[in-house]
Structures are given as structure tokens and as C-alpha cells.
Design a protein around this nucleic acid. Sequence first.
DNA 1: GGCCAGGACACCA
DNA 2: TGGTGTCATGGC
Length: 222
Amino acid sequence: MPDLNTIYTKLLTAYGPLHWWPAETPFEVAIGALLTQNTNWKNVEIAIDNLRREQALTPQAIAALPRQELEQLIRPSGFFRQKAERLQQLIEYLQSAHNGTLENLLNQPLEVARLELLQLKGIGPETADSILLYAGNLPSFVVDAYTMRLFERLGSLIGNETYEQVRDLFMSRLPADPERYNEYHALIVEHCKRFCRKRPLCEQCPLQTNCRYANPQARQDP
DNA sequence: GGCCAGGACACCA
DNA sequence: TGGTGTCATGGC
């Protein structure tokens, strides 16, 4: 089973530093994290561009929008009704508990901020960790479907682990460095978009010597 | 025209 | 606790 640091080095060598998250403010990161749930990032960009055009990328501006207007602006990101509701509920919580700013929530110990986010409807573990890491620069490793898929193929996971188990695995084997967590998750996504889809494209894959899908020997020897 | 995407949640057995 | 249905759009 390949070492997690070895895989990181291979991915970094293959793709270079990616410097996520593509956003101008921490709150914009949180918007993107919510909107990208089970959605192609290109559709999220369309929705965020709509919000930017309406100067609606702040908690105050979104809170002031009528629900139906917000729904139409974020409609390209899919699931727009529930995402509009969840976005405004997040802002309501920030206003009630943190003077309306995400920064105040994030300026707490990691696990305190994480539990607060997880209490909110529509913010599950991946969305919470994305906000903590990419908006708050806090060392919380982000696990997503790509992470599960890739590291199952690499033999690091069985495939039935819970989110928290996988997060704990990465955080126990990597230094608690937000920059490292930031790049690692971004590299996993970039890699999987290219090679690690449900129909894998193994010919040019930089991890093919480690992967069960590309390497029959690795497949036989998990 | 089907498949897929940087999930989360309610519901049920 | 684990499996399943629902939410919805747009690119490929």
C-alpha cells in the first residue's frame, strides 16, 4: 500500500501546486462549497458569476435577497431551491452567533468551528471541512468522493470506511499543515478529473504503478 | 440522449 | 447502521 506522503509527492510532481480555492473572500469560498455539492464546478462558476454581477457575494447582500430571486441567481448550480434555503440559513446563523461574519466563526479552535458548521442544515462533513480549510486556513482534511475512489484503487481504503475514518487516516499520517491539506485535496480532484473517473483512463496516469485499475499485479496484491 | 458532477438529508427496515 | 430516493442543472 503506497504511503500517503509518497502519493502526494507524485501528484504534486505531475500537476504542480494548484493554489485552491478559486475565490476572492472566505465567504465566497463558503458559497462555492455549498453550491458545488454533487455539482460540476463549471455550473457553480456560472451561479457565482450571477451573484457577483448582482453584488451579492456578501452575507448582508444575500440575506437581503428575496428567496426566489436568490434561487434564480444560483439556479445553474442545480438543487437551487434547497441550496438557496441552506445559504440563507447559514447567514442567519452567522448573524445570530457571529456578528454576521464567517471570519468570527472560523476564528475559533478547529473542532469548535467544525461542530458549529455541522449543526447547520445542509452542511455535512465535506462542506464543513472545505470551509474550514479553504476559507479558514485551518488544518482540516477534506474527503470527497474522489478521495474515496482513488485511495480505494490505490489500496489504502477498503471502500466501506466512514467519512470520519478516512479524514482521521489522512490527518494521522500527514503533518497538520493547512497548506499541505489544501494542495493534497486539490491535487486529488485534479487527478481524478483527468484519470480516475468511473470509466478510468489509465494510459497516461502518473499513479498507474500504484493503482489496481491500471496495474494487474497491484490488483492481485491489495 | 445518457452519464456525470468537488453532497446532504429524510426515510425506512 | 446501512441502503435508497430526492433534490436539478448543464457540459460532454
